[in-house]
């Protein structure tokens, strides 16, 4: 059986759910907004992980779940808690239920897309860049500094410089412009990340186990996700085919990072050099599938059905 966890109306979840329905898969959609009607209880005994998940009146043995696709939003921000005091019993239960779900997913003998620990590397972009380059990708020259003079020197040595957050929070890429130099003194308070702007074509590669879906993005904006806001025109997306070697590099990197599903941000320069900016462990693929028709959600669904099939074969 396959388990989907998140908000059913959230587009990536909805798309995967639609594909599973089309394929006739045996699945359960756990709406985290229904947490008050849900309960989980798991036990680790020697090498066995067992337990049960209760959703309304139905109870499911956890051992029956062979694959999980999770896109849980921050449970502390669920609308059901809007009027709840900080330490109310409902808030505490909500936190406890989501934590128990997460802990079970970390150790469940199932295919989990994706577990939390492998997602951790994305919490620090320069740290992740150090992992990325081990896989043969170029990474942009990056400076993190609290010294305004260093920023000026860095800018002088590059045609164009961008700045962005170091962590995964508030991660909007901006070009360092002349008017920004007036507030450079602020970096003394907090080391800030600056990066050479690599010119070329943005390519988002979604890897689902061994399936590879590559999308080229054309835009004048610094951050194509915000193209309409930054350049006044939405980005144009088209399906592209990667060389076998590059596709294998992407698959290998995602696998070594422990990610079943990854959104890899590449930039291919006019000289055919391949830079990798980031490996997104929780890709919102619907933007790419919606614009190109690439069957990414079908790939996620098929990947989970394969895992489910293996479990059924084992049981048989």
């Amino acid at each position: 059986m396959i388990l989907l966890v998140g908000i059913p109306s959230e587009t990536p979840i909805r798309m995967v759910r639609d594909r599973l329905e089309e394929l006739g898969a045996d699945f359960l959609m756990l709406n985290q907004r229904d947490f008050q009607r849900c309960a989980i209880d798991f036990e680790v005994n020697r090498s066995q992980v067992t337990g049960s998940l209760q959703v309304g009146d139905a109870t499911y043995p956890l051992e029956n779940f062979s694959a999980v696709y999770t896109r849980m939003m921050d449970d502390r921000s669920l609308p059901e808690l809007d009027d709840e005091p900080a330490e109310s019993p409902l808030r505490r239960y909500c936190r406890g239920f989501h934590d128990a779900m997460t802990r079970w997913m970390e150790i469940a003998p199932a295919l989990v897309i994706n577990r939390c620990v492998p997602m951790g590397a994305n919490s620090s972009k320069p740290y992740q860049a150090q992992l990325i380059r081990e896989h043969g990708f170029l990474v942009p020259e990056t400076l993190i500094t609290s010294n305004p003079e260093s920023v000026r020197r860095f800018q002088e040595s590059h045609a164009r410089v961008i700045y962005k957050s170091i962590s995964a929070t508030r991660s909007i890429v901006q070009t360092l412009e002349e008017q920004d130099l007036g507030r450079l003194e602020s970096v003394r308070w907090c080391p800030t990340q600056f990066q050479e702007c690599v010119e070329g074509t943005n390519v988002r590669v979604h890897v689902v186990d061994e399936r590879v879906y590559a999308t080229a993005i054309s835009t004048e904006a610094t951050d194509y996700r915000y193209a309409a806001r930054q350049s006044g025109e939405p980005a144009a997306l088209r399906e592209v085919k990667l060389s076998d070697e590059l596709a294998e590099m992407c698959v290998s990197m995602a696998r070594s990072m422990g990610l079943v599903f990854a959104g890899i941000d590449l930039k291919v320069t006019p000289e055919d050099q391949v830079y990798c900016f980031e490996v997104n462990p929780c890709p919102a693929f619907s933007y790419y599938e919606g614009n190109t028709g690439q069957p990414i959600s079908a790939g996620v669904a098929a990947c989970m059905m394969e895992a489910d099939g293996k479990l059924l074969a084992c049981v048989a």
């Binding site: 309960a39 209880d41 798991f42 680790v44 005994n45 020697r46 934590d99 128990a100």
Partner: peptide, 28 residues
């Protein structure tokens, strides 16, 4: 490492350990 992971790894390592149980009522 979380206690749930430690329980599994300790067993794999050959150390005796108690079973671990968690429900939604536990404080994270």
């Amino acid at each position: 490492f979380h206690l749930s992971e430690l329980s599994l790894f300790a067993h794999q390592a050959g150390l005796a350990s108690f079973s671990y149980r968690q429900t939604g009522n536990a404080a994270p």
